[in-house]
Amino acid sequence: MSPVASTVTPAAVPPQLRAKRRKSALRTLGFLSPWLIGFSVFFAYPLIATVYFSFMKYDGFADPTWVGLRNWKYVFQDSPFFWPALTNTAWLILVMVTLRVAFGLGIGLLITKIKTGAGVFRTLFYLPYLAPPVAATMAFVFLLNPGTGPTNTILAKLGLGTPDWFNDAAWSKPSLTLLALWGIGDLMVIFMASLLDVPKEQYEAAELDGANAWHRFRYVTLPNISPIVLFAVITGMIATMQYYTEPLVAGKVASGVIGGSGQQFEPGYPDKSTLTMPQVIYNLGFQRFDTGAACVVALVLFTLAMVCTGILMRRRSGFMSAED
């Protein structure tokens, strides 16, 4: 953090300057006011309220009553959803985020090497990222439908195995990973831009030293883009923690329990394998009337996300730096 505070004591400041300063403080306040309000009402207040509710029994009807740590104990010890959601998140961070970063980097590298039709390829690779998540997920559940989906039809024609994809607890997360890899556009562009920023001279120097392609990548490219890799990993982790729409819609559509006859869909189909923390919050808070337990899970999610954000802010001072 750069020191911005003035060291001059107010007494030493001539009145003119003080007035000017007050004016400038007011001006700053004016410019910042939308955010100051937004931050207090839509960030600080609900966070404090979440902490408050986590110690309360509140079903939305009767007034909240204090229950101490009961909700915390329930979530960590007794809830059938919390730990599966956490382990799923860990799996997705390990596999999905890693693969996404590797694949994004690979596609970014590929794009920088393409000589003919780079624009067309770039557009094609980028487009899936824009597909609305609900639409993309429904499309993938259809594509990967075990019985009649095109993927299994083609796999069967090629004489390959045909998994049950979104309908099999062992394959549901790999299926979600496939969906996430399809929408690689954001990472591709970020990596592409950072790859183009690597100074040419470093490559030339390496080539003179007789470095082969792998060595050039390992000793020139990677060190140059490592901050971007870190950025991609951390933001990917945070995005995974709040992963909601894709697993929920995939579970609903694949299970066949959707809308209709008043059947209630409990997220995580099949066998809680697609359960994530936000879905647990929704299930507890908006399906089971258990506001308190929902807030406990929310606070766990908050803590984990803020730890990641903290790492990001420490490691990438560029995030914070300002001109002075």
């Binding site: 931050f39 839509f42 960030f43 207040y45 609900p46 966070l47 309220a49 979440t50 509710f53 939305g60 933001t235 945070i238 923690m241 709040q242 909601y244 923390m277 936000p278 919050i281 929704y282 808070g285 908006f286 506001t291 929902a294 807030c295 929310a298 606070l299 999610l301 908050f302 996300a305 803020m306 990641c308 954000t309 990001l312 802010m313 995030f319 914070m320």
Partner: peptide, 17 residues
């Protein structure tokens, strides 16, 4: 930055109320 990274589901219960 913290607000940007905050999952929207964290504060949804009080916000909804």
């Amino acid at each position: 930055i913290a607000a940007m990274m905050l999952p929207p589901q964290v504060i949804i219960v009080p916000m909804y109320l």
